[in-house]
């Protein structure tokens, strides 16, 4: 259960204050599949970072399962990220000189999963993300953009998080693989009841979700249910 109440995020660049989020409020229930849509620079990633407990709001409240994330310490935030959230970054953020497998296993290291189980879990996640098995031992900086995207998705899925946050997950994929990834999210949502929030600026992509939140200049302009055919 996500409750965002009047969240403001102000960036301070050399004394110049910039409000990236100007008092955003909404709720997302467990098991929802939500798309956040908006033009570039509208504050989507900023909001996502707050939802992912990677950053804290300048003011307002963010309650995750009833816990006010805005007031947590650095280490408590780390615990939340580790146990509840799978994050897919807009720019992937893979360890460049590590193999695909090691990249995907990394969250399990911090989650304290025993070594024997890690490889299996990582391979399953990579399968879900649709990465070819032959790439397991390639270094991640030797992959194509689409392949990196899938590794990043696998890494987000590997620890079975209840909340999956995806920032432009299909931005680097062709239509076909994009569809595959989106149907993976849909499956995770329907079969495993995971909450999924994805960011996009494409209407077609957003249409895969059950609900679309429109954001512009740091404020919500529309919050609508998707009518499925």
């Amino acid at each position: 259960m996500i409750e965002v109440k009047n969240v403001v995020k102000t960036y301070d660049t050399n004394g110049i204050l910039f409000q990236a989020l100007k008092g955003v409020s909404f709720e997302i229930k467990n098991g929802e599949f939500v798309a956040i849509m908006g033009p570039s620079g509208s504050g989507k990633s900023t909001l996502m970072h707050i939802l992912g407990a990677l950053d804290t709001p300048s003011s307002g409240e963010y309650l995750l399962d009833g816990q006010n994330v805005a007031q947590l310490s650095d280490d408590e935030l780390a615990d939340i990220r580790k146990n509840k959230i799978g994050f897919i970054f807009q720019s992937f953020n893979l360890l460049p000189r590590a193999t695909v497998l090691r990249n995907v296993m990394l969250p399990l290291v911090y989650a304290g999963i025993p070594e024997e189980k890690r490889e299996e879990k990582a391979k399953t996640a990579l399968q879900h993300a649709g990465l070819d098995e032959s790439l397991l031992y390639h270094l991640s900086n030797q992959l194509s953009g689409g392949q990196m995207q899938r590794v990043a998705i696998a890494r987000a899925l590997v620890n079975d998080p209840a909340l999956i946050l995806a920032d432009e997950p299909t931005g680097n994929l062709d239509t076909q693989t994009g569809e595959f990834v989106l149907s993976t999210f849909a499956k995770l949502n329907v079969k495993q009841k995971r909450t999924i929030i994805l960011i996009t600026h494409e209407r077609d992509v957003a249409a895969h979700a059950n609900r679309i939140i429109n954001i512009r200049d740091g404020a919500i302009v529309k919050d609508e249910r998707v009518k499925k055919p």
Partner: peptide
């Protein structure tokens, strides 16, 4: 940053 993002604590 990445390590912290996926759950590494300060101590780690």
């Amino acid at each position: 940053g990445l390590r912290k993002a996926i759950g590494a604590k300060r101590a780690d």
